[in-house]
């Protein structure tokens, strides 16, 4: 059994428990051991790109250092994933930043980006393998047209995230095929849902998430899946659409027979 460090992040402990519990349960079934580090902190939700920001990057570095002990660091939430991967990329390309971080954290040795960071989807693709996953599926999503929603955080900036082709991604579509569903390709799958703007500008969030849902519906989707709690919130709450929105881990657990099918 391969062991990975698992960073749930703040929201998975509260509003997005489904994303978390089904991810853990499925990993066990797929032969992956996930170890949660002690005393982890919130990643901050957004990566600050400013070159002269250090403090906002520290908690991500702490998490990355914790990941050094295992095969790699696994995240599920798109936002955590984005913050941690961007931090890792910048710190490995910017020695001055690595030294500054070292001083802030009082490290013996500077952390320079050695930890390999996986999104849970990458874990399925690169460690488990979609073929292997397919073999373990007991409740396939037959005849279900499923729209994968990447949003902005999973793919961009592609230089740092290096997960998939940012304009024509396939990882979630391959996941959908592995669990027996039919992926739906639609225009807005890699455009933003409105994100945190929902706090102060509901109209903008509604416009963005509405456009995403409309685009998926137009192409005939039955449901939409995401890896991000904030995307899920916007798509469910602000889009004005009734199409079901799920975390991809919910479908994964259901396909693996770990969850009671609560289909609509």
């Amino acid at each position: 059994m391969e062991t990975f460090t698992y960073y749930p992040g703040c929201t998975l402990r509260t509003k997005a428990k489904d994303l978390d519990t089904y991810a853990r349960a499925s990993a066990e079934t797929l032969g992956i051991s996930l170890v949660e580090p002690e005393n982890w902190q919130c990643c901050g939700g957004a990566y600050t790109t400013a070159t002269n920001e250090v403090a906002t990057k520290l908690s991500a570095v702490r998490t990355l250092i914790a990941g050094k002990e295992t095969e790699g660091l696994v995240t599920v939430c798109s936002a955590c994933h984005n913050v941690i991967k961007q931090t890792n990329y910048d710190i490995s390309h910017n020695e001055a930043m690595a030294v500054k971080v070292q001083r802030y954290l009082g490290l013996d040795k500077a952390y320079t980006g050695d930890t390999k960071v996986y999104h849970y989807l990458e874990l399925l693709r690169d460690v488990v393998g979609f073929d292997k996953l397919k073999e373990k599926v007991v409740n396939p999503f037959k005849d279900k047209k499923i729209a994968a929603y990447y949003g902005c955080l999973l793919l961009r900036p592609s230089k740092a995230l290096a997960m998939d082709n940012p304009e024509n991604p396939v990882i979630m579509e391959d996941f959908i095929r592995a669990i027996g569903g039919t992926p739906v390709i639609y225009a807005q799958r890699n455009e933003c849902c409105g994100g945190y703007i929902t706090m102060e500008d509901k109209a903008q969030a509604a416009k963005r998430s509405g456009a995403v849902m409309a685009s998926a519906e137009e192409m005939g989707a039955d449901m939409i899946i995401t890896a991000c709690p904030l995307c899920l919130y916007n798509l469910k709450k602000n889009s004005g659409s009734d199409m079901p929105v799920y975390y991809f881990t919910e479908l994964l657990a259901e396909a693996l027979g770990l969850k009671e099918a609560d289909n609509e």
């Binding site: 703040c10 929201t11 509260t14 509003k15 919130c42 901050g44 600050t48 945190y196 929902t198 991000c228």
Partner: peptide, 13 residues
């Protein structure tokens, strides 16, 4: 329903 993520992100921004 609003996730914590929205609040921390907005704060950071």
């Amino acid at each position: 329903d609003m996730p914590q993520q929205a609040i921390v992100t907005a704060f950071r921004k």
